[in-house]
């Protein structure tokens, strides 16, 4: 089974829009960003399976089988 990682803005550089990653039981968001070479301080917002929250807390959440993550660098506008 695979999980889907949606990347945005400059996180797409060299990685693409969507990365599929093999699911292993117990894996967390931290494991995912480690694999992608992204560090927690670079992330401004993170959604795991439709739920958002503080980045550090969300990185500790176990990823669901067939689930998804959306990872954003600092972006803003209005």
């Amino acid at each position: 089974m695979a999980i889907k990682i949606k990347l945005f803005a400059n996180f797409r550089e060299g990685r693409g829009k969507i990365v599929e990653m093999d699911y292993t039981p117990g894996m967390t968001g931290q494991d995912v960003i480690d694999s992608l070479g992204i560090t927690a301080p670079e992330i401004a917002a993170l959604i795991v399976d439709g739920v958002d929250g503080k980045v550090d807390a969300m990185l500790a959440v176990p990823v669901k089988e067939d689930g998804y993550m959306a990872i954003f660098p600092p972006v803003a506008g209005g």
Binding site: A9, N10, A45, V75, A76, G77, G78
Partner: peptide
Amino acid sequence: GGLPTYGTAVLVNI
């Protein structure tokens, strides 16, 4: 970073 590179349009996805 985000605003100079992508403009305010960068908000669409997030």
